[in-house]
Design a protein around this nucleic acid. Structure first.
Lengths: 243, 243
DNA sequence: ATTGTCCAAATCGTCAACAATTTTGTAGAA
DNA sequence: TTCTACAAAATTGTTGACGATTTGGACAAT
């Protein structure tokens, strides 16, 4: 996941700690859609799965909750987050706000080396799409945006965007339309053209269009009903108060 | 701290949990400069101070570390973060990227009600400055930016900016120039004018100028040495290799 | 058939004790 | 004196157990 290069949150430790590994594994599982919104995460099961103590899992939960990727409900446990429609809209809005800036910076600081990097990534996207490997295609699609963020050289932005992309993954899982028309790979091509033009306004406009397109392909009117999802039907949380 | 209105991360819980309270108290202490970069945070001391168990403190540390407000070093403990020069530059760059967008949105969605809100805040800033209450002035200065973010109605952006402002507080603590020329209150006035103009480009430009001004008032060449900060004094890390 | 109550199982929340590690202090030899 | 080695203290890391809460099912009443 191209994570080996950057320094972790624990200065002074060079080898990956199991704590970080579990966190990363769960992030990957969310991107992969192996963990779907609403799923219950039982502490002891995960502890046994990863061969660590419950306390470790608990610590991981705190991190994930901080990223709003899971919900921690007191005495009930941890559940993969189920972003509301409002939340989804805000995430896309936030992404546009940030990625417009990213596109601007990348467009104005383009080099042959960087163009090559982007093209190489797009090739992988096309390959996955051609092979019908839908899962890999989705992941690569997210990593495309992350790659652009990385090219700005701003780690703060990169990390924030990474979390937003993860939340986007959950949003798509919840609100994707029945027939997934995944045409984002061609949109990424257009985006590359815009970036190569060198015009920041063009690049930003194309980025906005792309993100809006993703959002508009979703069904942000009603959530796909989960198992027994009265909560979403009535638009209130299961333990909501009267009046 | 205007936190009562918004929902916490724990859906279904209405009363503030001690866990959240401790977290908030530490954030306030960081903004307040009562916790300075490099300070060691001993688990048991804090546990006794807040009257909770060590485990609770430990959980709080994880959250703070995730926000990069403290450093967790294995077997060594928790230390208030000491942002590097590079980190500082990236934080300001990220803030500009985001707050440009904020300024644009606020400028184009201005109402008399909102203008009144902003003016009311500026009045408090001026009052604090007039009273020589430097501590409150700094806090209000940060909250000004947070207020603008809140006016965009995007909670995602608001929360992210809140963390960046906290990091900015640490950055200022580390790199502020000896004679603190705090003229940001007048800059906020200019910012208000720009916002009231209704022109997004004018607003964004003014915001950029303001953030750059804050950054340029710092001494981002060398950090001011902290309490027991021999590393920065001698320009090498404590565990530096010879040769 | 539905509702309501109770009980058992599962799960989470908390704590205190113990182990591991680092830091500090001390003594002894060159 | 200066360095090294070793021991003591302080601090963090981990575990396991226990209490509290929720969940699910059985069962009786309507």
């Amino acid at each position: 996941m191209a994570k080996a290069e950057q320094t972790g949150p624990y200065k002074g430790s060079e080898k990956l700690r199991p704590e970080e590994m579990i966190y990363q594994e769960m992030l990957d599982a969310i991107l992969d859609r192996r963990l779907e919104p609403g799923m219950k995460l039982v502490e002891e099961d995960l502890a046994k799965t990863f061969g660590v103590s419950r306390a470790r899992i608990r610590a991981t939960f705190l991190q994930l909750a901080h990223d709003k990727l899971i919900n921690l409900i007191p005495n009930r446990g941890a559940f993969i987050a189920e972003p509301t429609i409002n939340e989804a809209i805000e995430v896309f809005s936030a992404r546009r706000m940030i990625e417009d800036g990213v596109a601007r910076k990348v467009a104005t600081s383009m080099t042959p080396e960087r163009a090559k990097q982007i093209k190489s990534h797009l090739a992988r996207e096309h390959a996955a799409h051609h092979d019908g490997d839908h899962r890999t295609a989705i992941i690569l699609s997210g990593e495309f945006h992350l790659l652009l963020a990385r090219l700005t050289g701003n780690l703060v932005i990169e990390e924030f965007l990474e979390r937003l992309i993860l939340r986007t993954s959950l949003i798509i899982a919840m609100y994707e339309s029945p027939q997934p028309v995944d045409c984002s790979h061609s949109e990424h091509d257009q985006l590359l053209d815009a970036l190569l033009s060198g015009d920041p306004d063009v690049a930003a406009a194309e980025m906005s269009r792309h993100l809006d397109a993703i959002r508009d392909r979703l069904q942000l009117q009603r959530p796909k009903p989960g198992k027994t999802d009265f909560a979403s039907i009535f638009g209130r949380t299961p333990t909501s108060e009267a009046s």
